[in-house]
Design a protein around this nucleic acid. Structure first.
Lengths: 346, 346
DNA sequence: TTGTAAGCGTTATCAT
DNA sequence: ATGATAACGCTTACAA
């Protein structure tokens, strides 16, 4: 194994000088700097991670905690994991994957052992037990998702409220008066998953402002449950012409069912999907979507973490940032204006 | 921070004794063992990761290298990542997520710095440049996917050949004579992705044995490409009654198109999907599938890695294991026997 | 069975 | 701008 001492000898300097060059922690003359760097390359030196961590009191590792539960859309989680990893690398950090199978003890372990310098938590629940544990330790924490109490941590999430509102606006703009909101399975609402509740709230408020009537129905996403959901909506409000779908799994079934019911999209019914753009073109007709920037979530989270870590190292109090990413409406072919609404008394 | 010395003092023993208890590396009397463990719990001691790594010359971290490219089915990658992580934990290891964005340099860095004790590579390509780098360093390596040269490493994969054969057998058993194989996009075959080629080869061989005729057509998975693929198959072989779909994205479109074409499933056409069980029930009719155990892949890979690491630590040469996981045929409602094949001259 | 002490390879402090 | 040197907290021979 080639050590920093080997490099120092090869370059004819002391090992501290090598360390300075590699960490940029001191001013070093261009001459020696060049010599050191050449030696590093020539010998193929890779600083020992354990020694660095021990001596420097930081691991340059960020822990990313993933939910085991997968009612969240899996490709989205993956996208976040990858963007977190690549962004972390850009800042010289590596990412440790932690599942919450270990529960709160897992994050405690990686934080307390100094394995990770900070923790990014995905899919935060209301009253999440991991958060007090991290706060107590003073561990730098970033949340993807919004907590009840954002004190002492940073967080970033999609602006689901705005996403819901955007759906409502779009359908209202098109002249729809009665719309159905096909949500996630009821379990998701029972756990008070923030993304589901906020989307619905944003939609509800805007729908009311725009004087649309709407029915919200949970849906598990199977063909049968989608059929049942659609049937109920159409039974309760036969005049429904607009649909918002949040459960990705229900999109395919819904389109099939509408066609089967003789309602063609977008002529007789408009569908707006709350889903990643990527899925939009896989359906027929291509879906009008409201979606947030998936990659951005990971990038922003890492940025927040780096800032916290940097501040903490300088002895400054980290800033508790709170970012909501604006969603985008992309109009494709599954939504169209509702040409002749039956006249009704205002 | 509470150190091993604190624990030792609190328990009235030496720090090595604490270490022995925690690592199980020596016989320790039950009495002292109990006392040490109690002190550990009472003080909330978490051994410092950096120090352990430095002194023990191992990090207890396994690097998992994920492909950035996502033409592989994303939920499957996620499933592997999670099963690798949870299984690694059961053996006292953590998992470092590495994307191959850094290229071969990434794995080199992680291995050479001692950040990770071993590397698990997903989605291996023929002639993968990362493998020689790892081999040269003597880094313990496990592949998920089959390499051209399995020398000095272990590997595990689904038995795609068997999966292809299973599809052929099932359709042959049902009496189908003409079948269409709807594959991945042509890019996948051009890169010679092992899983695609092996599935097709297994299917082809068995189909020939069973005297079935078949057409293989690549398919990008969009509705349009699926329509085009189906049209071509039916134009070339109007008598086609069986379909094998490997591209998950094409399943939904295919079912829709068959229905639209007036061919009901399974009465007029059987569909067998090569996909995770999870997807099977989301479609109508529920899909007959041939699928491999997703979780198992991660588990086996970690098992292989642990064995390699253990052997290496003992100075023994690790065994180069090679495991292929048998797929399972699950008959659901999308396949049925072809009742009256038109008589043909044998 | 338990204790002593020598590393492990860096970083950081303090000189120069 | 560079160099000595003392931590950093644990593991592991070796000793007792």
């Amino acid at each position: 194994m080639v050590t920093i001492a080997d490099v120092a000898k090869h370059a004819g300097v002391s090992s501290s000088t090598v360390s300075y060059v590699l960490n940029g922690s001191h001013q070093i003359s261009e001459t020696t700097r060049g010599r050191v760097l050449r030696s590093v390359a020539e010998l193929g030196f890779h600083p020992n991670a354990g020694a660095r961590t021990l001596a420097g009191r930081r691991s340059r590792i960020i822990a990313l905690v993933m939910p085991l539960r997968t009612d969240m859309y899996v490709p989205v989680m993956m996208e976040i994991a990858i963007s977190v990893t690549t962004e972390a690398r850009r800042h010289g950090y590596d990412v440790l994957l932690v599942t919450d199978e270990e529960g709160p003890e897992g994050v405690r372990r990686v934080a307390a052992s100094g394995l990770a310098d900070g923790v990014i938590l995905m899919d935060v629940q209301l009253g999440d037990p991991r958060i007090p544990a991290l706060r107590a330790r003073g561990t730098q924490t970033v949340l993807i998702g919004l907590p009840d109490d954002p004190h002492q941590l940073s967080c970033v999430d999609h602006d689901f409220t705005a996403a819901g509102a955007l759906c409502a606006d779009h359908l209202a703009d098109l002249g729809h008066r009665d719309v159905g909101f096909i949500g996630y399975g009821s379990g998701v609402y029972e756990r008070h998953a923030g993304y589901a509740e906020r989307t619905l709230a944003g939609f509800r408020e805007r729908a009311e402002q725009r004087r649309m009537r709407f029915l919200h129905r949970p849906c598990e996403g199977t063909y049968e449950s989608t059929a049942w959901t659609l049937t109920r909506i159409l039974a309760d409000r036969p005049g429904t012409t607009g649909f918002v779908v949040q459960n990705e799994a229900a999109i395919g079934p819904l389109l099939g069912l509408l066609k089967a019911a003789g309602r063609s999209v977008p002529e007789d019914a408009s569908v707006v999907a709350l889903c990643p753009e990527q899925l939009a073109e896989q359906h027929t007709p291509a879906l009008t979507t409201v979606s947030g920037p998936g990659q951005e979530l990971g990038r922003v989270a890492v940025g927040q973490m780096i800032r916290r870590l940097t501040a903490a190292r300088r002895g400054e109090p980290p800033t508790d940032e709170r970012v909501l990413l604006k969603p985008t409406l992309t109009i494709r072919r599954s939504s169209a204006s509702q040409p002749s609404p039956p006249k009704e008394p205002s």
